[in-house]
């Protein structure tokens, strides 16, 4: 097991959210969208040049900017 940010994670890879670094507002918003520690996420797509990242949580898809994705850390298998 190793911990990487959503930004560093490979497209198609799945993992479990470990920690979210961010202000109260951001954590609350992600939480309301179903993205919180312990949750299983799959990365669907990433754009080059620090572009946005799209992840799947349960059956919903959430797109987020690179800045936010690099503050969400996920535990993935080797």
């Amino acid at each position: 097991m190793k911990t990487v940010s959503l930004a560093e994670m490979k497209t198609g890879q799945s993992g479990r959210v470990k920690k979210i670094y961010g202000g109260r507002g951001m954590v609350a918003r992600l939480q309301a969208l179903g993205l919180y520690p312990g949750k299983e996420v799959t990365k669907l797509s990433a754009f080059f040049q620090k572009g946005p990242v799209v992840v799947e949580i349960d059956r919903s898809r959430v797109a987020m900017g690179y800045g936010r994705a690099s503050r969400i850390f996920v535990e993935v298998g080797e």
Partner: peptide, 8 residues
């Protein structure tokens, strides 16, 4: 500007 979070 904070980065976006949007549901698709």
């Amino acid at each position: 500007t904070p980065s976006m979070i949007v549901e698709i």
